[in-house]
Design a protein around this nucleic acid. Sequence first.
RNA 1: GCCCCUGUGGCUCAACGGAUAGAGUAUUGGUCUUCGGAACCAAGGAUGGGGGUUCAAAUCCCUCCAGGGGCACCA
Length: 544
Amino acid sequence: MNMIREDIRNLIEKAIKEAQKEKKLPKFKINKVLIEHPENKKFGDYSTNTAMQISKTLKKDPMEISKIINNRLSIINPKFLEKIEIAKPGFINFFISKEFLQNQVLDILKKEEKFSDLALGRKKKIQIEFISANPTGPLTIGNARGGPFGDVLGNVFKKAGFKIEKAYYINDFGKQILALGHSVLKDKEAVYKGEYINELNKKILARSNARSVLGGKEKDSLKVGQKAAKIIIDEMIKKTVRKMGIKYDKWFFESQLHKTGKVDEIIEFLKKKKLVYKKDGALWFKSSKYNDNRDRVLVKQDGSKTYLAGDIAYHRHKFEKEKFTKVIDVWGADHYGDISGLKAGTEALGYKDKLEIILHQFVTILRKGEKQRMSKRKGVYYTMDELLDEVGSDVMRFFFLQKSINTHLNFDIALAKEQSEKNPVYYIQYAYARIHSILRKAQNNYQLSIINFQLLKHPSELNLIKQLIRFPEVVEDTAKDYQVQRIPQYAFGLASAFHQFYRDCKVITEDKALFQSRLVLIEATKVVLKNTLDLMGISAPKKM
RNA sequence: GCCCCUGUGGCUCAACGGAUAGAGUAUUGGUCUUCGGAACCAAGGAUGGGGGUUCAAAUCCCUCCAGGGGCACCA
């Protein structure tokens, strides 16, 4: 089955070409025909503004153009359309036929969890890296915001036919590890605060030789920091991530790049390409050659390498060793300033346009009515664990997924808790549980071969099917524009269509044939609801 | 100063340049002798201000106002 939206698009292009052949329309290049869902049902199930678009280049009345296109369409007269109308400035509106809709139910049932699997990816390999918060403390709701987003975007790509790797990059190298060590030792260079620091202090001091640690030597604080970072990753971050419902394919350690000489290699590589120079005792990368607004340091005065040097090495590894055709990094908005440096780096390596960086905006927390920017250094934060304990993973995920990544979230825990009880996720899960309740009661083994789908003709039944067949469109659109909030929106609309069907159409009835066909319809609904919830990583309960 | 993001009903959010700006929640009123009421139906209420482009602007351009983020040899 093709997506019906695609069929309509092809149909229009065909109609235009035929009209051109007959000289009803002059020759012009057809841009991609846009098909949308009108909000008002009287404008049909699908509509297009093509005539208006064309009128611009042709300098012709859009109504005239839509009439010409419509004439051709009525000659082609496709079976899946009941009628086509043209409206006011030049819209062409499409109404889908009952027969087509009725047939889709069977198609969905046959495909089950494969319904809406697309072939956009053609096995291309995409890596999506998200969260990647420093191992210096627990995940906060701020730095974990990219979690639900990245995880679901990965799921969408998978469904669209890409090979996907979800990765977490662990910055276990650099100054913050030293700072962590000092913090755990509670010496005068301590930076991080919080209960977890106290616990790490106890844990590490109990484990290691107290004398060598308390010696206060820098080496020791580094060792303590490394040890602490490992504990934070293993016992805090990995645990939280699991509770968030995220499964990473890879945990990659920055220190590994340094140990294996990958960072030195990259510096040598850039040297050979004459893209570096010395200034003020540091080694600079001429990133301004690649659209950066300034050059960047790779090796500091003290001989240590910058984060950027490691990150370029990391991305070379992604492209050269792991052969990703595309890499998507999801970062917090505070890393805005680093984008052009890394982009310049990957371009110098010859991987221009293969790296996409997506920023998510920040979460501010409201405490005592005061807005506060979260900061692990200041000890001002709200941890993801706390939130998960309060509302659970399903509500948390839905809460974040609903919102565009560009919104600045004001997080008020009191409000979040209050809203969690009324979270729309329950509305969707309830629809799913309701279906199972009917199925349990019906105890009916229907036979697909004898179902009369033509009995499904109530407006609420047809409307439900219309919602079902939109699912592939949701996957396709999201794989293309990354607007993940579309999925919870869709899920809500689907659940709503089901609840309305439930109100209007009784499944378990005396009429055996109708009973059977409706049973099959709710089976199909079950399949699509399940697929949608799976995509969002939200559980699908049979009972609530 | 320069760069990125944001400003939509009381609150939280949607809306590929499209048709009467769509939901949830809150408020008010209604449905029900329930295949699970965590449901259904209805009412009121919104695009920060000002210009412009367009047949059509929440969306694009300019400007002003307000908020968040960034302009490190920190990550």
